[in-house]
Amino acid sequence: MFLNSVVLILQETLEAALLISVLLVFMRLRCIRPFWIISAIAAGSAGAYFFALQMASISEWFDYMGQEVVNASIQLTVLLILAIFVAQNPGATHSTSKPQKDLGVIICTLLLVALSLTREGSEVFIYISGVIGHPSHAQPTLTGSGIGAGIGISAGVLIYYGLLGLPTKWIALSGLLLLSLVGGNMASQATQLLTQADWLPYSKILWDSSDGLPENSILGHLLYALFGYEATPSLLQVFSYIAGMLLISLCAHLGSRKISFSTDQKTTDHNASVNR
């Protein structure tokens, strides 16, 4: 009970902590109050609770494939919002961005945090409510959950301060890199779920690294939660991982170009008015 509580809670907490700490860094760069993220965490927790309550009926949708389809849809939606988020050049500091542009960034952040927590938190709710009933399970489950959550949140705090501790010009770039990994992870997990639901065809296993780095080792669990590490990924999973990463990188690239373009235009306008 102890160990699987650690593993389960750690995976879900770490995945959420990575996303939230990177988003918090961008909020910090934009001087947006972290209040928004806190309210999104509350909304996500409530969403997770209701999702968990409805899980039994949701699972029976689409010929018993409801769970896979709904989870995959949430993950693809997260990927899409992530793309929109990075396309707004969230790393631009306040001097080059107008305050009203923050609204798009805030809305994306809220949706990202709330949706991710809804999906990840529901599993935690289902697990805890199923396991805690047994009196001999209570203590190991709670201790294990504490350790799992502790490791996950600590990793999030270190990612946050680690990013902020970088030289200023690297902060946004590193944040975007992490977000592209989150995007790849989302795409790959969604592919896995849709393959499991038989909505996507089987594709062959590309490699097997379960001897060197098994998925059920501590490091394997950490890497799975952070970057979607799989010891035996399928071709389609690897393909969608790369596609997800490229999508986020491309949107981030376009976003940063758009901003610099409009800054150029503003400068020429200014010059024109001076000449007049």
Binding site: S59, Y64, Q67, Q192, T195, Q196, A231, S234
Partner: peptide
Amino acid sequence: YELNREKVISGNRK
């Protein structure tokens, strides 16, 4: 892990 499968099965359901 070997089958790459993960699915929650609620109590008294299939």
